[in-house]
Structures are given as C-alpha cells and as structure tokens.
Write a protein that binds this DNA or RNA. Structure first.
Lengths: 169, 169
DNA sequence: AATGAAACATGCTCGGA
DNA sequence: TCCGAGCATGTTTCATT
C-alpha cells in the first residue's frame, strides 16, 4: 500500500513546508539542525515518493471573481458513462473536485461560479448536457474552516490492526 | 465588495505562482517581461489585498496515512449552537473544511481519517458529542479531480441584477 | 544519508525616473 | 509603478565521510 516510513526528519520538513511553500530550505535546515543539502535531498526524495505533489499559492476565490461555492450531486442517466463524464468535467474549469462516493448519486463535485446566476448557468448549460437524470445543488453560504491535514507524528498500524485488515505492499 | 481591478500583469503573475509556489520570482519576471523588483512589488500588493493568502506544498493524504476521505452532513440538536460547534470542529485536525450550506443539514464538513474504522471512531467520539441529532456520511471512493480555480481573464462587475448580458458558451 | 564548500542564482531594498 | 544595481541570502552540486 501507500505507506512509506517517513522518519521524524521527514515529518518535520513536511510540517514546515506544508504551511509555507516559500520558506527557504536553509531555514528549514536550521530548524532541523541539519545541512541545507540534507533538506534538498530529503525533499527530492519526498517528491520522488509522491508524498509531495507540487506547491501552490493560495488565492482567495472571492478576490478573483468567484463569489459562489457549491457542491453538486450528479445522477447519471447512464451510470456506465461515469469515466466519460469525469473526462468532460475536467474540461469545465469551475469544477475543482470530483469524487465517486457512497450514496445514491453517481458523482459528487465541488465547484465555484461568479455568482448564483452563473452557477445556474453552468449547471444548466454544461452539466445537464453530460447526461444527467437529475442533480442536487448544495450552496455554501460560508466556509468556516478550510485548511490542510496535519502531519501525523506516527502512522504505523498499531491501534487499528485489531479491527481492520492490514495493508501491506 | 470584494472586487479589485487586477490587471493583466497581476493575472499573469497569479497564473504562474498559483501552479508552482516555488517558482523563482525572477523567472516570473522574465516570463512577464518586467523586472524582478516589479514582481516583488506586485506580489506584496496582492498579499496586502488579501488575494494571496499564503502558499503550501501539496501533500498526498494517502502517503501520510489518511486513506479515507469523507463528507459529513451534521444536524444539530440546537442549531443556535452553530458558532460554538464550528469552534469545536476547528480543534479536530481531521476536519479540513466546514461550510454552512443550503439544505436541511446545519453544517457540512470534509474530513480525512486513517481508515474507515478510524472515520467511525471520529464521528462517534468527536462529532456526536458536539450535540448532533444525527449525521449522514458520504465516503469518497476516489478523487477524480482535485485542482485550483483558474484565474479569470476578466471579471469586471456585471452587477448580479444585470444578468441578461453575460457570455454564453 | 549527511556534510561543507564553492559556484551560481535569486531575493530584497533603495534611489531615481 | 517601474527599473537597475548592489549585496545578502538561498540553491544546487559534488567530493568526502
């Protein structure tokens, strides 16, 4: 499975760079009491393992013209079109997440729109033609929490191997 | 209103740094045909305006021990406790998003857990005691899209009332 | 895997246009 | 607002342990 033994240095690095992608690696090095070259090598390793998947500046959606955030449950006329529909959703830039989930819906998406009117437009003009039997829209009035996952200090299977299957590579 | 007139240079900078927070500002400068100092000043301005809200490395949740992603609809016994519950949710690190939404639920959250068993534990031990009358859990089997919003090339106000004149695809 | 040093590149600041 | 220049700082590589 997707478990790698990250040691405490890896985790300390991750904690530091997760919160600020622009932090100088030398500053990370000083905080960890190792050389800059060591941080450089560790980060290259973490990228190679797929633990790190790039970096980004966080942009406030409202400030760039997206006032409406919504989740939409999609019910397909032909559920076998699942993959085809996902490909088409990728071409709609306002769709920023798409999940296959439990529940009666076939797909669950998160999207932004310029305003409520624009949201309706997108649902009607871009989503409906994908072959929906119906959809349900949940509009977010306010985002009260929006953050990253914390780095676990340890995640070897210990307390959950009693009741769950173990996953090994 | 949360609209600032970002010019084409601002947007070009945003497009470049949104996709890679570690890109050297001098490289951005070269791509934009301006000086490094100009990029430095623009980014400081964008931070001051609140358009830029920090930066982060993207970490694969699975690779750090979170195998389960779920959305949970929370129904409160006492809906007037809304704000108090949000404060308590902030203390649960696995909860990474919380929204007030349309629909019958009082709160809508996104969370990760080590596995399905751990998800149940968190819901039972940490969420239920917040004063829920009930909850509904949507587990994500797969995240097929997960990306940032694109920078619009133009979002000058069309007032929400004047919705007759907008672009149709 | 980590280190230190060296060569190179970038970040930041300020005076001036 | 932008530019250019100067200097402080960070990045990357490599021989070595």
């Amino acid at each position: 499975m997707a478990k790698h033994n990250l040691d405490s240095l890896d985790r300390k690095i991750l904690k530091l760079i997760a919160a600020d992608a622009r932090i100088p690696f030398l500053e990370v090095a000083r905080a960890c009491n190792v050389s800059g070259a060591a941080i450089h090598q560790r980060i290259a390793k973490l990228q190679g393992l797929g633990v790190l998947k790039g970096s980004q500046f966080i942009i406030d959606p409202e400030k760039i013209g997206y006032e409406t955030c919504a989740y939409v449950l999609l019910y397909l006329k032909n559920p076998e079109d699942h993959d085809k529909v996902v490909e088409k959703l990728k071409k709609i830039p306002e769709v920023i997440e798409c999940h296959a989930t439990t529940g009666a819906m076939d797909l669950f998406i998160k999207m932004y729109a310029r305003n409520n009117h624009n949201l309706m437009e997108i649902i009607h003009d871009r989503l409906q033609p994908l072959g929906l039997s119906r959809s349900e829209t949940i509009i977010s009035f306010s985002t009260d929490i929006d953050r990253q996952l914390p780095i676990l200090d340890d995640f070897e299977e210990e307390d959950d191997d009693l009741d769950d299957d173990e996953n090994e590579d």
